[in-house]
Write a protein that binds this DNA or RNA. Structure first.
Lengths: 149, 149
DNA sequence: ATAACTGCAAAACATTTGCATACAG
DNA sequence: CTGTATGCAAATGTTTTGCAGTTAT
């Protein structure tokens, strides 16, 4: 019965979203939410399923994918499509908006935040008359170690 | 026998890359290169294959994927992993470095360029001691038309 | 010659779907 | 009760792979 800071808050956000869309509050969905919020950093659907199964929480792959979609809808989770073929997810509530820096050699992922991005969003949105809702910036390069060898 | 501006230049870049890596200059590879450079905007592997087959150029799916990888390696093509599950490609030689603005409702894709990105690359690369080689910025939002309804 | 490339079809992979059963509201 | 959600396994769609035959160098 593990708990994390803000568990109640996050559960309430999810519950509200489900109520708003006439969807059920099932135990599976909350188990998945909890597991996501106990996870630091990026994860993929398969490893999330694996951890749940190992803990003895009976959920199926279909339910994991379905629930991740719901969590993305209500902004409790963000989905990233870095380079590979499978999506990565990350919890998003009360977590700073950030971008990513990836080493193409060793795969290390770092996070950063640059205020100029807000300026870019505002300006580009203004020019093309778009209402910008989110963005994804990923910088690819070589870290110090990999550059060494 | 269609030709596009810079065909000779682009073919030579590819030929050089193949020579450098002891790889063969096959007619299939150059047919694919030509087709890529006759295509404006984004495309995926399957539609490229379809166009080649329709033109009577005998290439297989495997060869299309293999060749696209080679073209990405020598920077003649960039691969994008927007939202969906399949990769999009785009020719890159003598084409401005740009980023993308996508309407989440209708899927429209616009291109833009903001010089501040260079500042972000330089600063973040400096702070984390990374040699930044490329970046991908995508802004998601609602275009004027979709916002209207 | 001979190592690399091609085409084909099968395999692999993440993700989605169909359907019978279970359960939240 | 009743419509949704679940679990399972089969289906999907994209990309990769193995192999026998072909070809550039």
């Amino acid at each position: 019965m593990s708990v994390f800071p803000q568990q109640a808050e996050v559960r309430e956000v999810f519950a509200q979203h489900l109520r708003d869309n006439n969807q059920r509050q099932t135990p599976e969905r909350f188990s998945i939410l909890d597991e996501v919020y106990e996870t630091d950093g990026h994860f993929d659907a398969e490893s999330l399923l694996k951890k749940l199964v190992e803990k003895g929480v009976g959920v199926s792959r279909a339910t994991v994918y379905n629930t991740l979609d719901l969590l993305v809808e209500c902004d409790l989770v963000v989905r990233h499509q870095f380079g590979g073929k499978h999506a990565k997810y990350e919890r998003a509530y009360a977590y700073w908006q950030h971008d990513h820096l990836i080493c193409e050699q060793c795969g290390e992922v770092l996070e950063f935040c640059d205020p100029r991005l807000q300026g870019v969003r505002d300006m580009v949105g203004g020019i093309y008359d778009f209402e910008i809702r989110r963005h994804a910036l990923t910088l690819y390069g070589l870290c110090r170690r990999c550059r060494g060898r």
